[in-house]
């Protein structure tokens, strides 16, 4: 059974059809890519999946249960998490605190608000900071990190949340090539070692072709093609969409 099952989802903003009739499935443990030219509706689809805005039509199932009527925070607590294209961290808190507050919030009661973070949580947070290569900087304000480091921190925060599935919105955009390799390596390790299913929006073709086992391509809000990387690379429609052919 698919972990994420998007069925004929549509979303329009005024007269602009950002998504129409999009269906996609992601199997548990998979790494799936989502590509398409700018403005093709990739981020809108992410927003629809995580409940950032209501959808106009269609249905979305996560882990067998419908989630299209749930709020973002409730969906996150079920284990479906997204990162943002513009990196979002808590700028005026240090990295350790950024990590701690990102712990999973499943089943939290009102009284849990006033419990301190257990020692294991601190340890886990520091391990993940180490994993992201940010251990030395753990006491710095997250807002003072470089953009690339903030991306890594955001990724580590997402792992801290122990998600079943992660939606990553352009994880490599704006970071230097050396750091990109490190990040890709970490994405793969998170997938292999922690079993996190990944759905990745990516413009860097080299990255996505190597990372994903299956790729969906959007264009003008519609699903243009789907299949393994090699097929997508040779698909006439995809090439036209990217290069502006007819």
């Amino acid at each position: 059974m698919a972990l994420l099952d998007v069925r004929r989802v549509g979303k329009a903003f005024g007269g602009v059809h950002a998504n129409s009739d999009i269906s996609m499935t992601v199997e548990p443990g998979a790494i799936v890519g989502l590509i398409g030219p700018n403005g093709s509706g990739k981020t809108t689809l992410f927003n629809s999946i995580v409940g950032h805005h209501p959808i106009d039509g269609g249905e979305i199932y996560f882990d067998g249960r419908p989630i299209s009527k749930l709020r973002t925070s409730a969906i996150a607590r079920r284990g479906l998490l997204r990162t943002f294209q513009q990196t979002r961290i808590y700028a005026r808190m240090n990295c350790t605190r950024n990590m701690l507050v990102s712990e999973p919030h499943r089943g939290e009661g009102v009284l849990d608000m006033f419990r301190k973070h257990e020692a294991e949580r601190h340890e886990h947070a520091e391990q993940l900071l180490e994993f992201a290569g940010l251990y030395d900087k753990r006491l710095l304000y997250a807002g003072d990190l470089s953009f690339g480091q903030q991306k890594l921190l955001e990724f580590a925060m997402a792992l801290m949340n122990e998600p079943t599935m992660l939606l990553l919105d352009e994880p490599t955009a704006g970071i230097n090539p050396t750091l990109i390799n490190g990040l890709i390596d970490r994405l793969q390790r998170a997938n292999e070692e922690r079993g996190v299913t990944l759905l990745v929006i990516e413009h860097n073709m080299r990255v996505i072709m190597n990372l994903a086992e299956r790729i969906y391509c959007l264009s003008h809000g519609r699903l243009l093609a789907k299949g393994p990387p090699r097929e997508i690379r040779d698909n006439r429609n995809v090439i036209d969409a990217y290069l502006g052919g007819q």
Binding site: S73, S102, D112
Partner: peptide, 21 residues
């Protein structure tokens, strides 16, 4: 406690905090 961190997170980026559950 968790409360202190949570309200700081809400101050810095409430949408992010919600997206994290």
């Amino acid at each position: 406690t968790r409360f202190g961190l949570a309200i700081n997170a809400i101050r810095d980026d409430e949408d992010k905090a919600e997206a994290m559950g």
